[in-house]
Write a protein that binds this DNA or RNA. Structure first.
Length: 572
RNA sequence: UGGGGUGUGGCCAAGUGGCAAGGCAAGGGAAUUUGGAUCCCUCAUUCGGAGGUUCGAGUCCUCCCACCCCAGCCA
């Protein structure tokens, strides 16, 4: 399916694959490999989820196994159908296929209820009347063992009857819970008689008002896995402490082919926010325009920004899978999208900050249709015609009246090549009297230097992109930058707490006076281009013919910018 | 001074007793009609620390240190 990925040499096997290898050798699960991606539908997916999606579906594919998509919808007070739709869309967009295996935890509520009854009958679960505060007190602390609930030793019959009454809605929210009877003095707090079921009189997005008791994650998850015959239940590190409970429940209820939980480190990225809670704050308090704001690391944000599924998958497959808490440099993500788009994006010329360039010796009313290569990395992409005339626009930063050292662009008396066109020589410039800014540059062209022509061999230091004034299209360009400023190591603690203070005030710069070449007139939403010398851009979903809007996905690497920074550092 | 984890270059990450892969970032160079892409070179005498076992230790043992997670009727 994605066989051309991971082109970079012998990939090393991650520790989960090693476990699978070992299990297959031992014929555990009869050689079956079955995973699942189990999101709770209470928010939008982000690139951290993409790591998990790629891991689970990828492992299944690699091992000739299966991977289910399963909604862990055990808490109706936090979940919503809106999220289900977005999650399905995102996983599919990433390129994964669960075939007919789309499941919901809520589909298993009856079975789960029966399993709870079974535990009660074994004397391994009981109905507890303690209120939430009391349960917390009875639980003890890290260093002090808990106390047994006074309701711990009710008879099986009484428990059965009480649990049925819980189900039947006889009791109020929070008045009773079903608990596992394990060990109140366990060093692992999760084993101190954990709550299995709680009363929540809330209608569920799928089961409606059928239930007023809902299973807790710790109870539901191992059962969901078992019902679906999952072999390897991959989750994140914070559930490591829950594994003994996962195993306790399954071994008390079932006996063969029990799934095993394996934990790995979740993805964290520099210069952005990954926590669902914080993402929600950004969206709900209006720091960004929505869940699909191109600055967000949500899948929908990345999609709108112009990231491709291929690039995201490559990223996820290359960051590694381990148990070390780590923070991946966002520049690695950028590397992955550049790598993809360099190969696949059509080149086009767009001037973001236009400066008029007049070729004094070019015929007044002539328009030449010049040939432009669509993608030097892919000859099969062909070429297109680009109109050229006497009056052009170039990038403001491409002319300097007093050029710094190593500046290869246009300056008084200097020559540059106009991409796909002619070599021009600057002959002077006009300054706007009011603003003092340079308003137009005059030059002459060398007719012999036309690209592809016999006299084109002459070398000049720089090449500029340009558009023809009479043919160019106006466009809005949104320049996106990192959502968050880099962390100041010294104030790391503080920075983490106040992520709002780290929001990059320049994360979005809107340019409304941009000019793009006419071939973009009917650019389709979602299409990606390389604006030569500037970066990769994507047609935004708000774009219309006559009112083009582009998002900057990522800039090109820019070694001139680096030289400038170094110069500044040296005081030049 | 409870339990569970993790510590390999600026950031990820291989490594499972025999002389520290790879990628990103960084620096240098070649070439170049994108200061892009490409190509070449440089970048851990050392694996959290200290002891020990061994001919040999990132890998085994002991002790120590640092960081992360856990006291929701959230997942």
């Amino acid at each position: 399916m994605h066989s051309q990925e991971n082109n970079n040499s012998k990939e090393s096997v991650n520790f989960i694959q090693s476990i699978i290898d070992r299990d297959r050798e031992n014929n555990k699960y009869g050689g079956r490999v079955h995973l699942r991606f189990p999101p709770e539908p209470n928010g939008y997916l982000h690139i951290g989820h993409a790591k998990s999606i790629c891991l689970n579906f990828g492992l299944a594919e690699k091992n000739n196994g299966l991977c289910n998509l399963r909604f862990d919808d055990t808490n109706p007070s936090k979940e919503d159908i809106e999220y289900i739709d977005s999650i399905i869309r995102d996983v599919r967009w990433l390129g994964f296929n669960w075939e007919d295996r789309l499941y919901y935890a809520s589909d298993y509520f009856d079975k789960m209820y029966e399993d709870a009854v079974s535990l009660i009958k074994q004397g391994k679960a009981y109905v507890c009347d303690l209120n939430p505060e009391e349960i917390r007190e009875y639980r003890g602390t890290f260093t002090k063992p808990g106390k047994e609930s006074p309701y711990r030793n009710r008879s099986i019959e009484e428990n059965l009857s009480l649990f049925k009454q819980m189900k039947d809605g006889i009791f109020e929210d929070g008045s009773r819970v079903l608990r596992a009877k394990i060990d109140m003095s366990s060093a692992n707090l999760n084993m101190r008689d954990p709550v299995l079921y709680r009363i929540v009189k809330k209608s569920h997005h799928r089961t409606g008002d059928k239930w007023c008791i809902y299973p807790m994650y710790d109870y539901a998850h191992p059962l969901e896995d078992y019902y679906e015959r999952i072999t390897h239940s991959v989750c994140t590190l914070e559930f490591e402490d829950h594994r003994p409970l996962y195993d306790w429940l399954l071994s008390n209820l079932y006996s063969s082919e029990l799934p095993q939980q394996i934990e790995f480190a979740r993805l964290d990225l520099t210069n952005t926010i990954m926590s669902k809670r914080k993402l929600r704050i950004l969206v709900e308090e209006g720091y960004v325009s929505g869940w699909d704001d191109p600055r967000l690391p949500t899948i929908s944000g990345l999609r709108r920004r112009g990231y491709t599924p291929q690039a995201i998958r490559n990223f996820c497959n290359r960051i590694g899978v381990a148990k070390t808490n780590s923070v991946v440099d966002i520049r690695f993500l950028e590397h992955c999208i550049r790598e993809d788009l360099n190969k696949n994006a059509q080149r086009v010329m767009a001037v973001l900050n236009p400066l008029k360039l007049i070729i004094d010796n070019y015929p007044d009313n002539l328009t030449e249709e010049l040939e432009g290569e669509n993608n030097p990395e892919d000859p099969s992409a062909g070429s297109r015609k680009v109109p050229f005339s006497k009056t052009l626009y170039i990038e403001k930063e491409d002319f300097h009246e007093d050029p710094p050292k190593k500046y290869f662009r246009l300056a008084p008396g200097r020559e540059v090549r106009l991409k796909n066109a002619y070599i021009v020589k600057s002959q002077g410039f006009v300054r706007d009297e009011k603003t003092g800014e340079i308003s137009e540059v005059h030059c002459t062209y060398d007719p012999e230097s036309k690209s592809g022509g016999a006299g084109a061999k002459r070398k000049v230091k720089g090449t500029l992109h340009w558009v023809s004034a009479g043919h160019a299209l106006k466009a809005e360009v949104r320049l996106y930058d990192y959502l968050l400023l880099s962390e100041d190591k010294k104030q790391e603690e503080e920075a983490k707490a106040n992520f709002i203070d780290r929001i990059n005030p320049n994360s979005l710069e809107v340019l409304t006076e941009c000019l793009v070449e006419p071939s973009l007139a009917n650019a389709v939403k979602g299409n990606k281009y390389q604006f030569m010398r500037k970066g990769y851009f994507c047609v935004d979903l708000e774009s219309k013919t006559g009112n083009l809007v582009f998002n900057r996905i990522v800039s090109l690497r820019d070694s001139w910018e680096k030289i400038m920074k170094i110069n500044q550092g040296k005081g030049k």
